[in-house]
Design a protein around this nucleic acid. Structure first.
Length: 157
DNA sequence: GCCAACGTTGGC
DNA sequence: GCCAACGTTGGC
């Protein structure tokens, strides 16, 4: 089981939005970056865990934990001309964009902010603290996962 | 396949 | 809203 970090802009989709969904499940659509797509299509597996991260907002950081409940399948918004994510070049018989379904495991009332993470000396290779890393889907190493979980647990006993 | 122009991301 | 650091596009 691997850990991932998924970024979301809370104005578009927040941890509270996920919490209010039926079964607290939702599909993760709208990823339009090839590297992130490759993760969703090939590497994110059922049972993997996801750090839910709020970006482009006042309080940036990890706000929850989720579990992957459905592995990569075609993102339907690419075929919807009404959608902002419509991709006219994507062939339905060979979809270009993928998504997964996630289910909320817990929301952290006390979040772990980006500045908190940056101040943690033992974090090794978390993409979100590396300059210029803009991927919205990224793997988290076992090493960094343990540190993040421990810090989140300490804040949210 | 190169690479300049352009668009996007995302923290600040 | 700024702007650095990317990724994508498209002419050649």
């Amino acid at each position: 089981m691997r850990y991932w970090l998924f970024k979301s802009e809370p104005d578009a989709f927040s941890i509270d939005d996920l919490a209010s969904r039926p079964d607290q499940c939702e599909h993760w659509d709208g990823i339009r970056n090839y590297q992130a797509r490759n993760f969703l299509r090939d590497e994110v597996k059922r049972g993997d865990r996801v750090f839910f991260y709020h970006s482009s907002c006042k309080h940036v950081g990890i706000v929850g934990l989720a579990e992957v409940v459905k592995e990569g399948y075609a993102d339907h918004t690419q075929f919807d001309p009404e959608s902002a994510y419509f991709d006219p070049k994507s062939d339905p018989s060979n979809p270009r964009w993928y998504m997964v379904d996630i289910k909320l495991l817990r929301k952290y009332e006390r979040m772990l902010t980006l500045s908190d993470i940056k101040a943690m000396p033992d974090i090794l290779d978390l993409g979100v603290v590396k300059k210029g890393h803009r991927l919205s889907i990224m793997p988290v190493s076992q090493h960094d996962t343990a540190i993040l979980l421990s810090a989140l647990q300490a804040r949210n006993p």
